[in-house]
């Protein structure tokens, strides 16, 4: 049973159920009932289903062909390149965040001069990339006429900071990493967007700006996320920086 289903159950509670008003105010799993001192079977299995979906989202392999096809279908005409991080597999990736931030030895990318590079990385939810990366990329590109954008880079076993060596190699002034976020019990497909000005290895997290929870229809929509990101991109280009300093400026942008 999904969260959405739970809400429907809650709102259809009989009149006079003192829990009805409380359930409407929270997605927390309140008033599940009991079987002895434990949970009733249905509630227990509902929880396991949500956990299983989140676990599977973490361990799904990134399907590059699927993302390429989705980009094409969304009208993205840019070339698509593929890279691997220095983490050879999922087990290593989960235990060695440092490897997920570096490119596999011998990786070559075409050097150029671009306003922007877009890196699509599996992160902790390849499922989020499968479902939301193409729609987000298309919405962002629509809003950036006149910007020179490097080929889209699909990254396997990638973390946010993998955008630093990729953006640097491509010669991009700004890199945006679209990455699958750590799945929650009710949000296994959430995509995050991280903007870094002047990408190079060693950038601190405080030098990035983040838009989280891109996940229509439950979370942020593509257009809404792209509007916010483009406002940040323009401010970042103007300021020649990103991160905390841009966030402070950003309050004037209303973003």
């Amino acid at each position: 049973m999904t969260d959405h289903d739970r809400e429907e159950v809650a709102t259809s509670a009989p009149e006079g159920d003192p829990w009805a008003v409380l359930r409407r105010a929270t997605r927390a799993r309140v008033a599940l009932g009991r079987a002895g001192d434990g949970l009733p079977t249905a509630r227990e299995l509902e929880f396991r289903a949500a956990h299983a979906a989140a676990r599977d989202a973490v361990h799904t392999a990134l399907d590059a062909d699927r993302v390429r096809a989705a980009l094409t279908a969304a009208g993205v005409g840019l070339d698509v390149l593929e890279v691997h991080s220095a983490a050879p597999d999922r087990t290593t990736y989960l235990q060695r965040p440092d490897l997920g931030r570096r490119l596999a030895p011998g990786t070559e990318l075409p050097a150029g001069e671009h306003d922007l590079a877009l890196v699509v990385a599996d992160g902790l939810s390849p499922r989020a990339v499968h479902e939301h990366a193409a729609g987000t990329v298309a919405a962002v590109l629509e809003r950036l006429p006149g910007w020179s954008v490097a080929p889209v880079v699909l990254a396997h076993q990638g973390r946010v900071a993998l955008g630093d060596p990729v953006g640097q190699a491509l010669g991009a002034a700004i890199v945006v990493v679209l990455v699958g976020e750590r799945p929650g019990l009710s949000s296994a497909d959430s995509l995050g967007l991280y903007l870094t000005h002047g990408p190079r290895p060693g950038r601190a997290d405080s030098e990035r700006n983040c838009i989280s929870n891109v996940r229509p229809p439950h979370g942020l929509g593509y257009a809404q996320a792209a509007d916010t990101l483009v406002a940040l991109l323009q401010a970042s280009r103007q300021l020649g920086a990103s991160g905390v300093v841009l966030k402070d400026e950003g309050t004037a942008l209303g973003s």
């Binding site: 434990g38 929880f47 949000s187």
Partner: peptide
């Protein structure tokens, strides 16, 4: 302990109230 083991703000799982009873 959190309702149904599901912390809907921090997005992680802790014990449930029924776990404490058990």
């Amino acid at each position: 302990a959190v309702p149904g083991s599901d912390d809907v703000m921090l997005h992680y799982q802790s014990l449930s109230f029924t776990d404490v009873l058990t």
